[in-house]
Write a protein that binds this DNA or RNA. Sequence first.
DNA 1: CATGAATGAGCTTTCATTCAT
DNA 2: CATGAATGAAAGCTCATTCAT
Lengths: 203, 203, 203, 203
Amino acid sequence: MRKVDQIKHEERRQQILQSAALCFARDGFRGASISEICAEAKMSSGHLYHYFPSKEAIVSAMTEGSLGRAAEHFERLMQSPDLIHAFITEITKAKRGLISQSLVFDVLAEAGRNAKLAEILRRHTIALRALLADFLRKAQVQGRINSELNAEMTAAVLMAIFDGARTMLVRDPQLDKGDSADYLELLVTRFLTLQDSGQSDKG
Amino acid sequence: MRKVDQIKHEERRQQILQSAALCFARDGFRGASISEICAEAKMSSGHLYHYFPSKEAIVSAMTEGSLGRAAEHFERLMQSPDLIHAFITEITKAKRGLISQSLVFDVLAEAGRNAKLAEILRRHTIALRALLADFLRKAQVQGRINSELNAEMTAAVLMAIFDGARTMLVRDPQLDKGDSADYLELLVTRFLTLQDSGQSDKG
Amino acid sequence: MRKVDQIKHEERRQQILQSAALCFARDGFRGASISEICAEAKMSSGHLYHYFPSKEAIVSAMTEGSLGRAAEHFERLMQSPDLIHAFITEITKAKRGLISQSLVFDVLAEAGRNAKLAEILRRHTIALRALLADFLRKAQVQGRINSELNAEMTAAVLMAIFDGARTMLVRDPQLDKGDSADYLELLVTRFLTLQDSGQSDKG
Amino acid sequence: MRKVDQIKHEERRQQILQSAALCFARDGFRGASISEICAEAKMSSGHLYHYFPSKEAIVSAMTEGSLGRAAEHFERLMQSPDLIHAFITEITKAKRGLISQSLVFDVLAEAGRNAKLAEILRRHTIALRALLADFLRKAQVQGRINSELNAEMTAAVLMAIFDGARTMLVRDPQLDKGDSADYLELLVTRFLTLQDSGQSDKG
DNA sequence: CATGAATGAGCTTTCATTCAT
DNA sequence: CATGAATGAAAGCTCATTCAT
């Protein structure tokens, strides 16, 4: 019985976080109110506080969860035969639309002010980067990518590119998604595959 | 008399926008209150509304101004002998710290919800991209970068990389700035200078 | 439990409306502030908004309620053996004093600007007029009043006189209430009972 | 020169009062702001305070002026061959529309709270009533109206009817203006012209 | 005579949070 | 487990009024 309760408790928590994610994406961390989240989760405000001690805790838990799920998604994508293509496509052709993208920027913005959030973001960033670096190292061993590249730094740069891809859509929604995906892919491919010939003629 | 007044009026406006930028960067668009901005601008809340009709107008004007100044700065950077290096350095080694960076993410986040802000962002994005594309075309003529690249799309991708560079700092403040700058530079340089050999072996 | 709650909710609503009526009568619709009403209703401002979505809604509900109660009172008066006398006395000798009268004028004034209020006022006016016209028609059948009079128009004119009676007190509080009541009664009585002789020699 | 100044000063004052009347009619005494009046009078707020020491003073002066002008208008109407008809027509068929009517109700409402306004209203009411009573007494001498009526009280009652006529339009704007005017005229005519036969059979 | 910059109290409304039931 | 009544601080904004120029 105790166990069933705990499971149900966790289910409710997840339901709240899911509702919160929706509201935060729609209206931002500050713009979304507790009562808006309660309405979305079909729950009274009093009851919501049985699951989370404060709004900030919801923000933290929700960010933690979202980043966690993103990492899982990422891991699954890493099984794909063409990782880069899969990633770029995922981001540039996002089905979930701009609103869901906003959440990422909200987290980035808030991380600059909220230490706890910054810590969560950093932890996930490092974990993801490690995962990616590992993958890169294997590819280097297989000779599929430039072996001179530092895997850790390369992973960091790749993540930056994925973030940058996300901004393209927001900055100009009318940009052709296919073209931008192609160019981003080209960018990454060139970066990864070629030997550094050293003769770069910078602009 | 009239002219002096108008100048003073404009000065006051700018002073408010400057204070607003500070407060918004510190606490976000929603988190920063009018009275906080008033305190920063040493001005009563009533008087502030002689200069702007609403908080939203301040957000818009402040964003417009910031993006405008960023574009000017960008144009100046374009005179530098090594554009890419100058850019990357500018972003990764930003002296103004994380707080000022947060503003960019706030704008990106808010643009997903606020149509007016989205329009401002898009306008500046397009203008900047045009500037950059122009620059790239000239470099192509001079044979300094790959002539097969579509200048417009390349410019868009470069801007994405600059945005991505900004996220690196936020995601992991302990990342070595020098290294990350070097890798980003390498990334861009390879992208711009090399001919598409077609034989890329993607991961 | 549910039912008790609902009853208590309605009681609280009525308490607010009663407090609002007092405050509005004392200071006018615009002059009375939400916090004044809250103080009167012994309730925090935040909580008041659980019962009404806006001040305007309070004004509307309060007007609706007041006019409703006035109509009930009116219906009770219609049972009295001498309707006209009862009415005139009611208005000219109002115990509730000038302040309560002011509310009527506030409604009339505001109805010229607030469409919702105008609609409420009109609805109650028409209902009351119908009631009064019905009464007049019965009196006509009984031969107690001039049968040539159009009951509907006569009812409208009677209501105008009742309103006019209300202004007398405000215009000159020192006017003898007994005398003015007598004269108004005479006015109405003559109007209702006499046949139109057509030979009126107007001034 | 001094005299010209004074004339211009008075002209400006009147211009302000006229603008104020418009704004007050449109938005009520509290609803209309000083800056709204300034905009209407094409004058800075600072300058407006050279002519009136406070908003309340404007309300008072404006009421005084309006009532004064109404009295003059009334006096002119008294020259007409058919006073009652002229009056009723004037009120029920008002060209100036509901907004201007609202002002009367605003004054009546505010008089219940503002002693100074009450005094102004009372003074004008008494003056007008005296004028009307005088007129009635002459008509009694000429045998045109019932000589048993007390002229002063009759005048008061007539004024109440005029006020009542004004409410008809506000209470139900769809009421037929012609019919209501006819009935009001009938009401007044019967009241004034017939001998009190004493046999009234009240309802 | 005339302007409009400047104030600060006060307005309506919202919100995160607590608590009695 | 669940509700929603209740709070009070704080939000964005308006306004009558004053004052330096």
